[in-house]
């Protein structure tokens, strides 16, 4: 895709914003999955090796957590990878044209004295 008009840039930026948001959530989901897995697995190992009897609630809780986290991790990891690639590809399109997205989410030229190219807050997207 080669961005040439503001309409196309608006569509491009919508995709990019979606990818960024999705990536943030995928990252959090992946970390949460890892943390849950680590928590449940460590607790189970600990219970099985050292704990006296009578920890059935903790045991069942850990088992359930493990069941949730085991499928969650690969799903979140794949989603993260896919969104990461999509995000990079969308940024790459802008970069190839000497553009970048600044901290405020505006499209500016990629140089020390940036010129504003597209600002969703200022322009409706129409040419």
């Amino acid at each position: 895709m080669v961005v040439v008009t503001l309409d196309e840039l608006a569509v491009h930026m919508r995709s990019l914003t979606g990818a960024e948001q999705g990536l943030r959530w995928a990252r959090r989901l992946f970390s949460t999955g890892c943390a849950l897995f680590y928590l449940a697995f460590s607790t189970l190992v600990f219970l099985m090796q050292y704990s006296p009897v009578g920890q059935i609630a903790l045991f069942i809780g850990s088992l359930l957590t493990l069941v949730i986290s085991v499928p969650l991790i690969p799903v979140a990891w794949l989603a993260r990878r896919r969104l990461w690639r999509q995000r990079n590809r969308l940024h790459g399109v802008l970069f190839a044209q000497g553009l970048r997205v600044d901290e405020a989410g505006r499209v500016v030229t990629n140089d020390p004295h940036p010129r504003l190219i597209y600002d969703r807050a200022r322009l409706s997207g129409a040419v």
């Binding site: 600044d102 901290e103 405020a104 500016v108 004295h113 940036p114 010129r115 504003l116 190219i117 040419v127």
Partner: peptide, 19 residues
């Protein structure tokens, strides 16, 4: 590109503008 707007000095100092 059909529209290009030059950023003002304050806007161009990116971290400051969005701070």
């Amino acid at each position: 590109m059909t529209v290009q707007t030059r950023l003002s000095a304050a806007e161009a100092s990116l971290p400051d503008a969005s701070s």
